[in-house]
Amino acid sequence: APSNPSHFMKGAIIQLATGELKRVEDLQTQDFVRSAEVSGGLKIDSSMVVDIRASQQKPGLVSLHFTVGEQQSKVTIDVPPEHPFFVFGQGWSSCSPERTAQLYDLACHPLQVGDVCVSITLQQQP
């Protein structure tokens, strides 16, 4: 579908906060961690997947339930099943690796309950 964001396409060029350029498929956990460190204002959170189910409101989408950060805040987002998430120590993962491969040519692991995803939030000012 033409509405899919193309930054997940295999080969897409991603600029890290350090200025370094990498292909999306070559990104490592440390690239996100380092980028957040130097970006100022952004912070990496660990968001654990606690539930995956079909969206009640939006047919065709998947509701992903996370507990986010040290506060273990509960956050739910609805995404297409092919949407990739970056899992700590594992890399790109999605609810449907087959669809991700079809749409983006990006290799993904299956996203599962218990996976800890990279997410960002605003740095809290002390």
Binding site: H7, I13, V24, S47, S73, V75, F85, F86, V118, I120
Partner: peptide, 19 residues
Amino acid sequence: VPVFPWHSLVPFLAPTQSD
């Protein structure tokens, strides 16, 4: 060739403030 910022790849999950 378009260049995308790193933060566009990961979700912004803002915890809801409770207080």
